[in-house]
Nucleic acid binder design. Sequence first.
RNA 1: GCGCCAGUAGCUCAGUGGACAGAGCAACGGCCUUCUAAGCCGUGGGUCGAAGGUUCGAUCCCUUCCUGGCGCGCCA
Length: 559
Amino acid sequence: MGNTLNLKNQIAEIVKNAVATAVDDGAIPPEIRGVDVKIEYPRDQKFGDYATPFALESARVMKRSPMEIGSILAPYMGGDSRIDTVEVVKPGFINMFISRKFLFDTMKEIIRQGQDFGKVKKEEPKRINIEFVSANPTGPLNIVNARAAAVGDTIANLLEFTGDIVDREFYVNDHGNQVDLLGLSVRERMRELRGEQSEFPEDGYHGEYVRDIARHILEECGDETEGIEDGAGLVEYLASKAVEYNVDGQRRDLEAFNVRFANWFREKTLHDAGRVGGTLDALRSRGVVYSDEGKEFFRSTGFGDDKDRVLVRDDGRPTYFLADIAYHHDKIMRGYDHLIDIWGPDHHGHITRMEGAMDALGFGKILTILVAQQVNLLLEGETVKMSKRLGQFSTMRDLIEEIGVDVARYFFVMRSLESHLDFDLALAKKESSENPVFYLQYAHARICSLFREGNTRNVPYDPASAIESHLCHEASVLLMKHLARFPEEILDAAEKCEPHRVTSYLMKVAQAFHRFYSEHRILTDDIERTVTYLALSDAVRIVMANGLGILGVTAPERM
RNA sequence: GCGCCAGUAGCUCAGUGGACAGAGCAACGGCCUUCUAAGCCGUGGGUCGAAGGUUCGAUCCCUUCCUGGCGCGCCA
């Protein structure tokens, strides 16, 4: 359904049909068929709503001037009712202006579809697993985790909106040295609390929250720990208790951020079920594993890596890398068509080897790895270093309490993933009233307010009785154009996994609405015009609500 | 040394192989007796890090260099 409303695709079809018809007519040689049809947005309004450089790009193949080709093709496009005029200009651009009738019909269609407007229904939806945050269960979530959470959840929303089936997944690294270290740290804090002699590990977790965990375990499970003899068993027990404590905390923080994971996958389950060894066997059978000095290596140099990577140490323990391959292998075996990972900046060096491993297992390009670049947290102009082990960091929870979910989610998503983000906490809080988020929400609230006022004045609102001729001013036409672009903007953002496109698009819609609102009084004695303006506002409200919904930002009815 | 990301307006950042490079914030000047001024209108502000190359056309692609950040464990 949404597909049919994707204007950009429609324009591309119109151009392709024009070319095909022109060839059939013998107006232009058939070689032109090989040239790609690109549709772009002209920078300037005067160059139309959509343009194609097709004539320019086919000039060489055709051995004719772009202007000549353009003037042959233009008449074939002009006949379509969705297009008002077609112009061929200067170097050879073919510029198309959308007809107002079509924009008006689209506006009514938006109101008809409501919250479904822009959604795509696929015949064969893809099953997609998107894994993000996946912080170690050794402490609270931090600011970088928050960025990954906002971006990952928004990408998931985009993919769902455009017709795929998406599972959000969190990988819990509850296995290995870090977890042991956590257990040790907790044991020492417990000893302190009991007033016993303690020796805190140098490289342990120094954060205050470790004391909270120790206190929690003493209160909840003090009796159980009495029965366990001090040693590896106790550390393991405490570690698993601490992991559960931290995972619970992380889950709560994420839920407060409106992010809910379908799966919380434990690394431990892979080891316990023998999946790690299974994946090693699978790699062996592909001939990409060799032994050296008692270790097992993955020949990742065959996949573009700069050196081969150890899978199994000489003491027989698997590396994290092997477990991670096994984890991705497991996800594939669960039947997903596509995997998306969002990694932190400190893992970008692992991309080549992981993609290589998927390739080696015979799964080609099933995995997409996105890297969320670092977040610099600024407090009063100073960069704050974040380190869990040193216990000095700002948590995601602090952030949410400081600036709220809406502002936080919006700020994280409005920058492209690969740009380093400077996040000034104090500024974000202090200037919240001049925030872009509020600007968008204000547009929505304003419209809701209009409808409330219309109700008290007993305006008979029926979008079907809107009249096109009332929407002839520049501000309203521009607004309708922006509204009509919602489906293609969303699809674009989803396909490219670039949620920040949504924020800039919504900004344009809000701007166009605020301008329209200031230029035109909506509730007047002219009922016909009032209803028409209300219909346009209604369409804006729907697009804003749908867009904000994808961002996980609320669309308030009053502010 | 190698690799990844970035270098665009005072600040934070969008942007595209094409037509005069954009937004938000900051600055300056206007606009509320009428539907929410968390708003609108206007002004100023740029050798798109540098140099070459490919192209009809490059801020965008390629090469080299400079600057900033991060990574370069058989830790996870």
